[in-house]
Amino acid sequence: MDPKEKFYRHFRDSVDALQDQIDQLTQLSSIGGERQDATDNILAGISKLQNEVADAAEFTPAYDRRQYSDAIKGLQDKLNETLAKFAPKTRFQFRRTGTDHIDMGAPENDPRLNPGSLSRRPRSPTTAPGAARSMAEENRDIVGDLPSTGKNYNEELAKPDLASIRKPSFSAAQSIDISDHDGLHIILPSSASRATAAGCLRNLKNCVIDLSIPTAQGAPFPGLILKDIDRCLIVAGRVNGPIHINDVTNSILVVVARQVRIHNCKNVDIYLHCASHPIIEDCSGMRFAPLPEYYVRDDDPSTSLFWDQVDDFKWLKTSQSPNWTTLSEAQRLSDEVWTKIVPGQPGIGVEKVLAKVGIPPK
């Protein structure tokens, strides 16, 4: 089937399913969080659809992308109208922008590379005071965007602290957004499982970041973006949708995701559990290994899946791409590293952890 036709059918089915879910909201009870859980699932579904439209931009013309954007906007409007019927008003709403049509394939609007890009337009003068923010704004963990809290997690993490390991709760945040840090060891506790929107790790150097605990027993993240990262060890937790890895160098990643897209990366080891072929583009020095046993769950269908079936979009020959290879068992990190070193120990700083996992010194 032609890729454009295949995506059109998938998009149409996804929109129909989301419309049905929105229609069913009126039949759900607010008691016990039933309606709120359904709303969160719809928000995650719309966010996933936006990412898929951006992914399909390489083979869909601008006119088709315009139609897709109109359909997504229709979903947002319908969700707003449905939620407006409930009391008290929910803050999970999309804001209309001053633009009639948005090209999801345009770089400035690509949600993979510019999280929250669709919300960075001036608020309409006619917007009523106290109107709800867009989903993209909700996806950013910024002071003022969090309900009933004045925390700015990135500012808080950047403050000097005697503890070598930071454990921000993110319990009041709707998404994980960790950015602009150097030399930190961050472990998210289980309270961060309330952040159910797609997350982003961005502009990080010489860090150890572990997101696995919130998704170990709870719901996985609907999507995740890793961008502009150097000399880091990142355990990305579980991602139910796509994970986009861009401009990462000299690092080690642990990834469990449905779809993995990797762009402009160099010298990165990826321990991977993936439900589809991982895709690399403009990359070199990539090495892949199966998910470490320490992170395997009983309900995982397989620990290997497609970890070693990488598609290199910049290598069209039938021979093996020179841009990636697999890690032999002897080259992979030991169970002791994952169980004792990565979680952190008293007196062991970030540089010692990075050295023990084999990341070269600065």
Results as ranks from 00 to 15, higher is better:
residue 3 P to S: 11
residue 3 P to M: 09
residue 7 F to A: 10
residue 8 Y to R: 15
residue 9 R to L: 13
residue 9 R to S: 05
residue 10 H to P: 05
residue 12 R to A: 14
residue 21 Q to G: 08
residue 22 I to L: 06
residue 23 D to T: 08
residue 28 L to G: 04
residue 29 S to Y: 01
residue 32 G to H: 03
residue 32 G to L: 04
residue 33 G to P: 14
residue 34 E to D: 02
residue 37 D to K: 12
residue 39 T to F: 01
residue 49 L to Q: 11
residue 52 E to I: 03
residue 55 D to K: 05
residue 61 P to L: 12
residue 63 Y to F: 10
residue 65 R to V: 01
residue 65 R to M: 06
residue 70 D to P: 02
residue 72 I to A: 10
residue 74 G to A: 12
residue 79 L to W: 12
residue 82 T to F: 04
residue 88 P to M: 14
residue 89 K to F: 12
residue 97 T to R: 15
residue 97 T to V: 14
residue 104 M to E: 09
residue 106 A to V: 03
residue 111 P to C: 10
residue 111 P to R: 08
residue 123 R to K: 15
residue 125 P to N: 12
residue 126 T to E: 14
residue 131 A to Q: 15
residue 131 A to Y: 14
residue 133 R to P: 04
residue 135 M to R: 04
residue 136 A to W: 06
residue 142 I to Y: 04
residue 151 K to V: 01
residue 153 Y to D: 00
residue 159 K to C: 01
residue 159 K to F: 02
residue 160 P to L: 12
residue 161 D to T: 01
residue 167 K to P: 00
residue 168 P to N: 01
residue 169 S to H: 03
residue 172 A to H: 11
residue 180 D to F: 00
residue 180 D to E: 00
residue 183 G to S: 07
residue 183 G to E: 10
residue 186 I to H: 01
residue 186 I to N: 01
residue 188 L to M: 02
residue 191 S to N: 07
residue 193 S to H: 10
residue 202 R to C: 02
residue 206 N to V: 04
residue 211 L to K: 04
residue 214 P to E: 13
residue 215 T to A: 09
residue 215 T to K: 07
residue 215 T to N: 05
residue 218 G to E: 11
residue 219 A to E: 12
residue 220 P to R: 08
residue 223 G to H: 08
residue 225 I to G: 03
residue 231 R to D: 05
residue 233 L to K: 01
residue 234 I to C: 01
residue 235 V to K: 01
residue 237 G to S: 06
residue 238 R to I: 11
residue 240 N to P: 02
residue 243 I to H: 03
residue 245 I to P: 04
residue 250 N to F: 02
residue 270 I to R: 05
residue 274 C to W: 02
residue 281 E to A: 09
residue 281 E to K: 05
residue 289 A to G: 14
residue 292 P to N: 05
residue 298 D to I: 11
residue 298 D to E: 12
residue 300 D to S: 09
residue 302 S to G: 09
residue 303 T to S: 13
residue 305 L to G: 05
residue 308 D to N: 15
residue 311 D to G: 03
residue 313 F to S: 09
residue 318 T to N: 13
residue 319 S to Y: 09
residue 321 S to E: 05
residue 322 P to R: 06
residue 327 L to P: 00
residue 327 L to R: 02
residue 330 A to L: 04
residue 334 S to F: 05
residue 338 W to Y: 08
residue 343 P to R: 11
residue 343 P to Y: 08
residue 350 V to W: 05
residue 351 E to V: 06
residue 352 K to D: 11
residue 352 K to F: 04
residue 355 A to M: 03
residue 359 I to S: 06
residue 359 I to W: 08
residue 360 P to F: 07
residue 361 P to W: 03
